[in-house]
């Protein structure tokens, strides 16, 4: 019987694959079906995932196995319940406390993380000596890197009109942005085509056996 279920599974996969692809032609009952099954199934999946992989190991498991040393975990548990109190319209305001806590934490942590890794590290990485590079290409490139970084930062300068020196640098900055957008786009094409190849290999191979999987 298992063999049948394996084959059935492949047919299920093929059916849903084609249903999603059919959206490219136009919206149709097959897509609608696949879409709603996808939304429902994945919502269910994440619900179960949250219980088994987040709440049990991080909260219930710890509290049940060693209550005394995990007593602090009752606080987030309580805050979690306060979130759920939203369901009673009159008591909605109670959920502001967990939200305030979460947002305060996020704001604090973001300030630290972004200043460290996106400001300090990136600034340090841009302090380079182009003259010390090995090839002509690297030398020119490194100069471009420094100038480009500075110009694009100046493009984001908000509190002055973009004219004069600021106008020139931010114009330059836009050129760098354009090159970077084009290049990143071109760079990603290959990876995205691989995804389609993968799907077609499943359809033509595992399902139809036209090609050897």
């Amino acid at each position: 019987m298992s063999q049948f279920m394996t084959t059935f599974g492949i047919w299920l996969g093929a059916f849903f694959t084609i249903s999603i692809f059919s959206f490219l032609y136009k919206d149709n009952p097959f897509y609608k079906l696949a879409e709603q099954i996808f939304v429902g199934l994945s919502a269910g999946y994440w619900f179960i995932y949250t219980i088994y992989s987040i709440l049990i190991p991080n909260l219930f498991g710890k509290i049940l196995s060693d209550f005394n040393s995990n007593i602090m975990l009752l606080i987030p548990a309580l805050l979690g319940m306060m979130m759920l109190i939203r369901l009673i319209p009159k008591l909605e305001w109670i959920s502001r406390y967990p939200i305030a806590l979460v947002i305060g934490t996020s704001a604090g942590i973001s300030m630290l993380r972004y200043t460290q890794s996106d400001v300090l590290s990136q600034v340090a990485a841009t302090m380079i000596n182009p003259l010390g590079m090995n090839t002509i290409g690297e030398k020119i490139g490194s100069f471009i890197l420094i100038i480009g970084t500075v110009c694009v930062i100046m493009y984001f300068y908000f509190s002055r009109k973009q004219e004069g020196i600021l106008g020139a640098t931010s114009k330059f900055g836009i050129w760098f942005l354009m090159i970077s957008f084009g290049a990143s786009f071109g760079y990603t094409v290959m990876a995205r085509i691989s995804l389609l190849i993968g799907r077609l290999q499943f359809l033509l191979g595992d399902w139809l056996h036209i090609i050897k999987p």
Binding site: Q122, L145, I146, G148, V152, I153, Y155, G173, F176, I179
Partner: peptide, 11 residues
């Protein structure tokens, strides 16, 4: 150039 722009966006 791409690296420069991305870096500046990040900063």
């Amino acid at each position: 150039p791409t690296n420069a722009a991305q870096r500046a966006i990040m900063i």
